[in-house]
Computed example of a mutant assay.
Amino acid sequence: MTKQEFLTIYESSKFNLGEYIVVIDNITDEPLVMGCAFDNCIWKIYQTKEKGGHYVIKEFLNEIQAFNYFYELLLSRHNYLSGNS
């Protein structure tokens, strides 16, 4: 899915991500963030730690692949926290 498609779906999904927030458009070192950002011509899926600092989970050259993966990552966390399989 494209970034815009992701945003539309995400806003209507009401994901339970615990204390994490979602950041799109830039990489931040703020604590407890899950994000997807276009950085140096690469789409980066990243997460930050409780005390700040980020690490890249996966990189993609393609926007659609990046947001498909990011959506699945958020859905997986939602299902884990909600007790769904």
Rank of each mutant, 00 (worst) to 15 (best):
M1R: 09
M1T: 13
T2G: 14
T2D: 12
L7N: 08
L7D: 03
T8N: 09
T8D: 04
T8F: 00
I9P: 03
Y10C: 01
E11Y: 08
S12Q: 15
S13I: 02
S13A: 14
S13C: 03
S13Y: 06
K14P: 01
F15V: 09
N16G: 01
N16W: 02
N16I: 01
N16H: 12
L17I: 01
L17R: 01
G18F: 04
G18S: 10
E19W: 08
E19S: 08
I21K: 15
V22H: 08
V22P: 00
V22A: 03
V23D: 03
I24P: 01
I24E: 01
D25S: 13
N26L: 09
N26H: 14
I27F: 03
I27N: 04
D29T: 15
D29Q: 11
E30S: 15
P31K: 03
P31E: 02
P31A: 03
P31Y: 13
P31H: 08
L32N: 15
L32A: 09
V33M: 04
V33K: 10
M34N: 11
M34F: 10
M34W: 10
F38N: 15
D39W: 04
D39Q: 14
N40V: 10
C41T: 11
C41S: 14
I42D: 10
I42R: 13
K44T: 07
K44H: 06
K44I: 08
I45E: 09
Y46A: 11
Q47A: 12
T48P: 05
T48N: 12
T48G: 08
T48Y: 04
K49S: 15
K49T: 13
E50V: 10
E50F: 05
K51R: 11
K51S: 12
K51I: 11
G52V: 03
G52A: 02
G52E: 01
G53Y: 02
H54W: 09
H54C: 03
Y55S: 10
Y55N: 04
Y55A: 06
Y55G: 00
V56P: 07
V56H: 05
K58W: 05
E59L: 00
F60P: 11
L61N: 14
N62K: 12
E63L: 03
I64K: 11
A66D: 10
A66W: 09
F67N: 05
F67G: 08
F67L: 11
N68T: 15
N68G: 04
F70C: 02
E72R: 13
E72N: 14
E72M: 09
E72Y: 07
L74Q: 05
L75P: 00
L75Y: 06
L75C: 01
L75E: 12
S76P: 02
S76C: 05
R77P: 00
H78V: 08
H78S: 15
H78K: 10
Y80N: 02
L81T: 07
L81N: 08
G83N: 09
G83T: 13
N84L: 11
S85M: 09
S85R: 09
